[in-house]
Design a protein around this nucleic acid. Sequence first.
DNA 1: GCCAGTTACGAACCTCGTAACCATC
DNA 2: GATGGTTACGAGGTTCGTAACTGGC
Lengths: 324, 324
Amino acid sequence: MKLQQLRYIAEVVNHNLNVSATAENLYTSQPGISKQVRMLEDELGIQIFGRSGKHLTHVTPAGEQVIKIANDILGKVESIKKVAEEYTKPDQGELNIATTDTQARYALPQIIRQFIERYPKVNLHMHQGTPSQISEAAARGDADFAIATEAMHLYSDLIMLPCYHWNRSVVVSRDHPLASRSQISIEELARFPLVTYVFGFDKASEIERGFHGAGLEPRVVFSATSADVLKTYVRLGLGVGVIASMAIDPVIDKDLVAIDASHLFAHSTTKIGFRKGSFLRSYMYDFIERFAPHLTRDVVEKAVALRDAQLIEQMFADVELPLR
Amino acid sequence: MKLQQLRYIAEVVNHNLNVSATAENLYTSQPGISKQVRMLEDELGIQIFGRSGKHLTHVTPAGEQVIKIANDILGKVESIKKVAEEYTKPDQGELNIATTDTQARYALPQIIRQFIERYPKVNLHMHQGTPSQISEAAARGDADFAIATEAMHLYSDLIMLPCYHWNRSVVVSRDHPLASRSQISIEELARFPLVTYVFGFDKASEIERGFHGAGLEPRVVFSATSADVLKTYVRLGLGVGVIASMAIDPVIDKDLVAIDASHLFAHSTTKIGFRKGSFLRSYMYDFIERFAPHLTRDVVEKAVALRDAQLIEQMFADVELPLR
DNA sequence: GCCAGTTACGAACCTCGTAACCATC
DNA sequence: GATGGTTACGAGGTTCGTAACTGGC
């Protein structure tokens, strides 16, 4: 058994069992992978992939288990490399952050500015995507951190730590009937067409819950994943915006009126997640603490030791999180 | 980085940094290992081993971390092999049990007889040793199971599950003054020279505690690790034996008198332990359940998911364990 | 001077890439 | 016929063992 073989089977799975595509992605030849995969199967005496003729059609049950462990191994190999780099290049390395538009645009810039000032030799890469893409990137090891609000709980391979609560605001243009109001009821809001985040995406569910709790059905005429896009359509008069309060910039958005809606919808919690068993560089701990000051290295290490999502939730049950 | 290199560094550590001995043990050449170790160090850019001249003197801090992860990886490589064997040879394989004399001699024979009858193709190997040797064998992966009463908690890499409680008996020859007594007090016992397990070994501490609790100091004139040895010296009239009740055979030991001492010393708990993250073959689950019927596969899997020793202890807090 | 690790070198083996071939859609 | 996997084969590199060498105790 070779590490290379484990890499190959893991990557073949990541490429939907397409060996040619895998080869291209790994800058190697297709026959090479094909052969190593079969050699591993021969050595183990089992089929990892089911085949119809020459095509790989599915992963066998035995294969599922093997691939799961192979991914653990490959993650730990990366950990060894990171341990070494921690000694050879203390303040140098990569930091891959997978997150949503809103976080990247409104929550992270301050932190990242400070961070790159402190760690000029750390190369920072941002990966944007849907919450599930984000979580998967972290679970696969493509990203060091996943920062998002929802869907993260679906990946049991991730350690997730709560960072902060946030609320929504209703946003309208200055000439809108609601513009003069300082407070709005859910019934009033329900009369207007809404412009808000894509349902099922990041942060929609609390909005739905807010309306349903009052026996109302929201009328969403336009939805998108990015607050900037939403604001643009609010400006066009398409409807009333319901967006994260932190996504309202007093300068840029001075042509809009924002009305706090924290009494209409329950707050959401943004979390930071990373792969279980992965080694965190010192600067990664530092990043976490800059992003969420209550998540000191000690706290993070304690949470890592717990490993279980429910236990970690309990650990933070009585911690007062910041509100943004 | 090659798996072979990880194997080498792990084995060099297991052989007290003696490369020649490692090479011999792995049936390979000393220069081969030496070279691969340095190649790995070069690749990682760190020293794993500290050297004075040509001798390896110690493991560096970075090395400690790397070796820890390397062992995880090697354990998972074994898991992959076991997964494969679970499919290719369902009722076939190896079972390595590390345990103490007493368990091997009195607790296990029944179970093992049944087990080899059910699984004739499983090769069973028993490794005897002190509790710490036993735990280490399991933690290193040399043994699948560690079965012992003490010292197992020192190894955080092990999952330990409680199997049964047991008590001690006072054992004397038929002509001894105590032979006619049906019950003994701690004060009476303190008047006689004792023959019992080596202190610090398996099961001594509860005996010490029993005496100290009454403000007494036991006078141990002879100690050994094996109940059979102890009984032999009781027969010679060297002293009064205090041994595990299960180590008294009504037939073989009919020349001795055993008096229950469960009211003098708190019971001990025998545990079964195995390495965290290791894959357990079906027959291994079966073995556990035969040895401790409350440890069904479900229960074991739940405990494995908890991972933490304290949490596992809580899990069994209200379980009534059998008494032997 | 002995023990233990390093350097040097050659044989055997393995990995990988190219090219030709073949199965499935 | 296009896509994708297997077989065949040769070049290049890697690993491993033997042998000679060298630094500590």
